[in-house]
Design a protein around this nucleic acid. Structure first.
Length: 878
RNA sequence: GAUCUGUUAGCUCAGUUGGUUUAGAGCGCUUGCUUGACAGGCAAGAGGUCAACAGUUCAAAUCUGUUACAGAUCACCA
């Protein structure tokens, strides 16, 4: 059989992915097997694949494929998120390019454009995931705004409203002046910003005395309705009961005194703008101050801004300072660094704004969500994220769930005026709302059309928090077969930055609607960074294109590269070169296949003892490593599991096993060894398959004839069995002897082809297991192994443990170099003995430590002494 | 500012309830190999007073405390 010397992933990967799709191997239906369920963290519907997705989805695929091979009914549900703010912004931009202003079109028209946009640009990312090999059940692909999910959200809203957990109220919220919507506390990112601290003079009414107030936002003085100082601040006692003039504005406002003020900061005097700062708002409520809103929704000043009306808030800041400066109302300006809230989505500076919004009460539901994590019903990997989680839940505030957007689930609240009073009806549909109106206010409206629906939509996270339930239609049909079978899901794989947005809220929804956790384990991935440790981002241009990477290194190569360096919760410093290791590994396996398939098989040949032993040893090694790998998976240590698999295949299988059984050039191999080798190879491919699905499927098919439609994907994952540690230990000694001989060749410049002789000193009463001798001869290219009682002259030596080995040299031996080497070894051994003796001569140790430990130390001492004696004798011999 | 988590070889990380040769892996590095599967390879090497200091213990990378540095989360300081 002719097989190319290099593995070519491209053709292979497309071929097998189509095959898997065609055979519907990813599809899952409830049956009597145990389910294993994962729901994808839905990416933005119009997003494109980036390295974070690659990492996240590779991990999910590894877990899902493994579960499937372990005999579970694996179901990985894909889908996308409508991402209201981001998508709406994209649609608005698209319209703008076409010369259409959102304000000029109706809501229905806008939605039509938005759906078109979604159909055209949506779901690219899901296509890209197929390149990666993601074994999602594509038949189940969902969208947070499709009918089932939309209706689920609406029902939940109505239900929570009826339970009194959702309310509408006027509150100070975080306003995004670019997206023109309120956002939740979690969507505000505080960034350090270098600004100025302005010291402004507020003259006491009718006098030439003034008080200096420090502010970072002079443009808000138009909204000032008081100045506040600390009641015990001696500097300002004279101001008690006085009134001051807001500089440049002329408004006269009272001095109030409250302990809220920090006397150390600035001048110890604070201007109060109740409409534009949460703290000022609170003080305003406390002292019954008027609240003057000076901003339009887009961050420009409104008519209350006087001459600055219409200006942008930052332009106004400059202009107003210029004017105040000219009027002599500025005492000084200092550089100042503070944290300014930015919108997570648009990066606009957030404006605190008083407005009517919908909120969800969090305190009770938060407690339940905390409990299930605290008592480990849900386990976090790594566990440290429990702290973050706890802290957030213990300090949680009500969730602002309304958004002033169109793209999203429209809030099912309907308004009508009854006897001059505004009434609110919350119902799943307009018809239901009408029914309720007819019941409560007979004759108030004649038809459902007359009801006015709330203009706002719900926060995107108000739909994704239901994801593990709504995917199986568990909100609308809570007793359906699917939700009962697949829920709760098993593992959630996500990035830690959405622990509050998503993870915590899904746990809440699970408690509220299933009385059960939504998943058992949460695996937090790290952040993919570039070599310099920077976060990958579009604007920095430091993010490689995943599709190009996969074309260059193969999906398997990229998968392996990412997994190897990414233990749970650790950031991944990504460098393209780590994919090379994955690509090289695929190639290595490929060449092992070439070797094995290149052998001529003879059915007449009996299996040699060496081959039989080699097969047995390899089987023991696999059993031993399998045990480690199973432990790794139990603890979600995926990179360790992969590394263990990698070493098993590369070192144990390729470097040792295949060399042990490799027939001499031109000679055939016996059928039994060949058969065992193929079986071992197959099992190794099964073990590797979850990590590298494509190359393993390809090789699995090339190893043996397979029935039509067969796939490695549904083979049984090998499981650990009892193994013979003694055999592994014996072989390890043989391997050391082989390495010793190879080392000698290396240092003496001897060709591997030159046959040598090996003498092993088998001292008094020492029994050495000789079963690996044949293998030693073969791999070390040793003509003959002799066991002797005495040292051998005219030979160089090395030690394996306490055993001395000699290799006679025909050419002259460099005595000085030999002596140096032995003396170094001796020095080390003596140093070692000294450290052992230090312990053993300590009476407290001998008496205090457990017997077992003391016995080990005694053994160490005996071994070291023996070694020292042997080395001394060798040196003397030279 | 508060809380949490780290600090082990050039890089990325293991190191299980303190005790199995004075610490391990992968990559990288060095030195040999135009070896009949593979140079995307083979073989052999070098490389660490486990951040610092103090303490507990017969015994500390491992437990305690202090310090330094890094990261994460949170916070109303105008």
């Amino acid at each position: 059989m002719e097989i190319a010397s290099k593995y070519n992933p491209r053709a292979v990967e497309d071929k097998w992915y189509s095959f898997w799709l065609e055979k519907k191997i990813f599809h899952s239906e409830p049956d009597n097997r145990r389910p294993y369920t994962v729901v994808i963290p839905p990416p933005n519907v119009t997003g494109v694949l980036h390295m974070g997705h690659m990492l996240n989805n590779t991990i999910q695929d590894v877990l899902v494929r493994r579960a499937r091979m372990m005999g579970k009914n694996a179901c990985w549900v894909p889908g996308t998120d409508h991402a209201s703010i981001a998508t709406e912004a994209k649609v608005v931009n698209m319209l703008k390019e076409r010369g259409i202003d959102k304000r000029d079109i109706t809501r229905d028209e806008f939605m039509k454009y938005a759906w078109e946009w979604k159909e055209e640009h949506g779901g690219i990312i899901l296509k890209q995931l197929r390149k990666l090999g993601a074994s999602c059940d594509w038949d189940r692909t969902a969208f947070t705004m499709d009918d089932i999910r939309y209706e689920s959200v609406i029902r939940v809203f109505v239900d929570l409203y009826n339970k009194g957990l959702i309310y509408k109220g006027v509150r100070m919220v975080n306003w995004d002046p670019k997206a023109l919507t309120a956002v939740s506390d979690e969507e505000v990112i505080y960034k350090e910003s270098h600004g100025k601290l302005f010291y402004l003079k507020y003259f006491v009414e009718g006098t030439d005395k003034y008080i200096v107030v420090a502010t970072t936002r002079p443009e808000t003085i138009m909204g000032d309705t008081a100045v506040c100082v600390h009641p015990e601040d001696e500097r300002y006692q004279w101001l008690k009961g006085k009134r001051v003039v807001v500089p440049g504005v002329g408004r006269v406002v009272p001095i109030i005194m409250d302990e809220y003020v920090d006397r150390e900061f600035g001048t110890g005097a604070l201007k109060i703008t109740p409409a534009h700062d949460i703290n000022d708002y609170n003080l305003g409520m406390k002292y019954n101050l008027p609240s003057i809103d000076i901003f339009n929704d887009n961050g420009t000043l409104n008519e209350n801004g006087g001459k600055y009306a219409g200006q942008d808030r930052f332009a106004c800041r400059k202009n107003i300072m210029k004017d105040l400066e000219e009027a002599g109302l500025v005492e000084k300006v200092e550089d100042y660094v503070n944290k300014v809230g930015h919108s997570e989505r648009t990066d606009a500076v957030i404006e605190p704004k008083l407005s009517a919004q919908w909120f969800m009460k969090m305190s009770e539901i938060a407690k339940k969500a905390l409990d299930v994590v605290e008592n480990n019903d849900i386990q976090f990997h790594p566990e440290k994220f429990k702290n973050t989680y706890r802290h957030w839940l213990e300090n949680i505030k009500d969730w602002c769930i309304s958004r002033q957007l169109w793209w999203g689930q429209r809030i099912p609240a309907y308004y009508l005026d009854v006897d001059g009073k505004r009434e609110t009806i919350v119902a799943a549909t307009r018809e239901e709302a009408f029914d309720e109106v007819s019941r409560r206010f007979p004759g108030a409206v004649q038809s459902s059309d007359q009801l006015e629906q709330d203009e706002d939509v719900l926060d995107t996270w108000f739909s994704s928090w239901l994801w593990p339930i709504s995917l199986f239609d568990g909100i609308r049909n809570p007793d359906n077969k699917e939700i009962k079978y697949y829920y709760p899901t098993d593992d959630l794989i996500t990035a830690p930055d959405i622990i509050f947005f998503w993870v915590a809220r899904m746990i809440m929804a699970g408690e509220e609607y299933r009385q059960e956790v939504p998943f058992r384990h949460v695996y937090f991935t790290g952040i993919v960074r570039d070599k310099l440790g920077r976060k990958m981002s579009k604007s920095l241009g430091n993010s490689p294109d995943p599709i190009e990477l996969m074309e260059k290194y193969g999906a398997d190569g990229v998968r392996m590269g990412m997994l190897l360096t990414a233990p749970a919760g650790n950031d991944l410093p990504f460098d393209e070169s780590i994919c090379e290791q994955g690509r090289n590994f695929a190639n290595k396996i490929w060449n092992a296949l070439r070797l094995v398939k290149g052998w001529e098989v003879s059915s007449d040949l009996n299996q040699s003892q060496e081959n039989e032993l080699s097969v047995q040893w390899m089987e023991q090694r696999m059993a031993c490593v399998l045990e480690d790998i199973e432990k790794d998976f139990e603890q979600y240590r995926l990179s360790e599991a992969l590394m263990n698999t990698y070493k098993l295949i590369w070192d144990d299988f390729c470097s040792w096993y295949l060399e042990m059984i490799k027939p001499a050039y031109g000679s055939p191999i016996d059928a039994e060894t060949m058969n065992s080798t193929l079986t071992i190879f197959e099992r190794l491919m099964c073990m590797l398959h979850p990590f590298m699905p494509f190359v393993t499927e390809e090789i699995w098919h090339l190893l043996r004839e397979r029935p039509e439609g067969a796939s490695i994907m549904v083979q049984h994952m090998p499981v650990s069995v009892f193994f013979d540690q003694r055999m592994l230990d014996d072989c390890a000694i043989a391997q050391e002897i082989i390495a010793g001989v190879r080392g000698l060749r290396n240092s003496k410049g001897l060709s591997p082809k030159e046959q040598l002789e090996l003498f092993i000193v088998c001292g008094e009463g020492k029994s050495l297991n000789k079963r690996f001798d044949g293998i030693i001869s073969k791999l070390a290219n040793v003509r003959q192994i002799s066991y002797v009682n005495e040292k051998v002259g005219g030979a160089v030596s090395f030690m394996v443990g306490t055993t001395e080995c000699f290799v006679p040299m025909t050419q002259n031996i460099d005595t000085e170099a030999e002596r140096k080497k032995l003396e170094d070894e001796l020095k080390y051994a003596e140093g070692f003995l000294a450290s052992v003796m230090k312990k053993l001569s300590n009476e407290k140790f001998v008496n205090g430590a457990p017997e077992k430990v003391v016995a080990v130390e005694r053994q160490k001492k005996a071994d070291a002494e023996q070694k020292i004696a042997a080395l001394k004798a060798q040196i003397a011999n030279l």
